[in-house]
Amino acid sequence: MKNHILLVDGMAILFRAFHATAYRNYFMVNSKGMPTNGLHGFIRHLAAAVDHFEPTHVAACWDMGSKTFRSEMLDTYKGNREAPPVELIPQFDAVKQVAAGYGIPNIGLKGYEADDCIGTLACLYAEEGHHVTVLTGDQDMLQLVRPNVDIAIMRKGEGNYEVFQENSFFEQKGLTPAQIIDMKGLMGDSSDNYPGVKGIGEKTAIKLLTQYATIDQLLENLEELPNGVRKKIESDLDNLHLSRKLAAIHCEVPISCSLEDAKWEVDEKQKQAMLEEFELMKLSRLLRPADSVTN
């Protein structure tokens, strides 16, 4: 049977789980005074994904601090983001303990984002012939779609996904996965706080890439563009090149995760101990694969 590896964008799920309840100022707090609504939601989202995609292996990737090679390239990168809510901060480390309680390896490396770790592992596993599904809420991940790599974007509710695959990607997005990088280079990204070309939005970026395929070919044919568009690009070339570099997921991070470590196999005693520690026993019925280890 072909291995199916689920790569989990840990922070994306944790933030989604937290804000799903926090917007009502509702926080689950255990007897130690620790908020656990993010942990609770993380487990529920993870359980829904495992049930839906039926992976043979699972690994979770995480950001390891705010300083990365991108923030060295642009000191204002992601600088517009608010500090995380105080109720969420203690759950950053706890959620990794939750993942470990289910036997899921936690992958991350300082200087890189979770996206880069996911991209690296996805490419490695796909090249070895395995099927990879990336679970995320981040549209930037769409550039990773390729043979053997699907991107599952979480939609509202649990177990609701829009899955992007190589054979149908162009029909869904009107671009190739590689063109997602160039689109972000042209239009920038207000969420990650990098500029792109001032005055060029998504609609114009897609139109230009539909005609010229890549930024490089676009630049070789600037004289063909309408004066307004050409002048915008010519006056913002530095930001164009910088934004394209910032948008590209780095798929050569010096990390590894063996299939043996990532095998989806829950040790019930380990799981129960973790759930008891964080007082999440109401969720004990979730994530119980048929081949659970009972020891």
Rank of each mutant, 00 (worst) to 15 (best):
9 D>S: 10
9 D>T: 07
9 D>R: 11
22 A>P: 00
22 A>W: 10
24 R>W: 07
25 N>K: 13
25 N>G: 00
28 M>I: 12
29 V>S: 06
30 N>R: 10
36 T>Y: 09
37 N>A: 06
44 R>C: 07
45 H>G: 08
46 L>V: 09
54 E>A: 13
55 P>M: 13
57 H>C: 09
64 M>C: 04
68 T>M: 01
69 F>Y: 11
74 L>P: 03
74 L>V: 04
77 Y>Q: 12
78 K>L: 09
79 G>Q: 03
93 D>K: 14
93 D>P: 00
94 A>C: 08
100 A>K: 15
102 Y>Q: 06
102 Y>V: 09
109 L>R: 13
111 G>T: 05
113 E>Y: 05
114 A>C: 08
115 D>F: 09
120 T>V: 12
121 L>A: 12
125 Y>G: 01
129 G>A: 07
134 V>Q: 10
136 T>G: 07
137 G>T: 10
137 G>R: 06
138 D>M: 09
139 Q>K: 15
140 D>Y: 04
142 L>G: 11
151 I>N: 12
154 M>D: 01
156 K>F: 00
161 Y>W: 02
162 E>V: 00
164 F>V: 03
168 S>N: 12
172 Q>R: 15
177 P>W: 14
180 I>C: 11
185 G>Q: 08
196 G>Y: 15
198 K>A: 13
199 G>K: 05
206 I>Y: 13
207 K>L: 07
208 L>S: 07
212 Y>E: 00
214 T>Q: 01
219 L>T: 10
220 E>N: 14
223 E>P: 01
224 E>K: 15
229 V>Q: 14
231 K>G: 00
233 I>Y: 07
234 E>V: 03
235 S>P: 00
236 D>R: 08
240 L>T: 05
245 K>T: 12
256 S>L: 05
257 C>I: 02
260 E>C: 05
261 D>S: 13
265 E>G: 00
267 D>M: 02
273 A>S: 01
274 M>C: 09
276 E>V: 03
276 E>C: 04
277 E>L: 07
278 F>S: 01
283 L>S: 04
284 S>D: 09
286 L>N: 06
292 S>R: 06
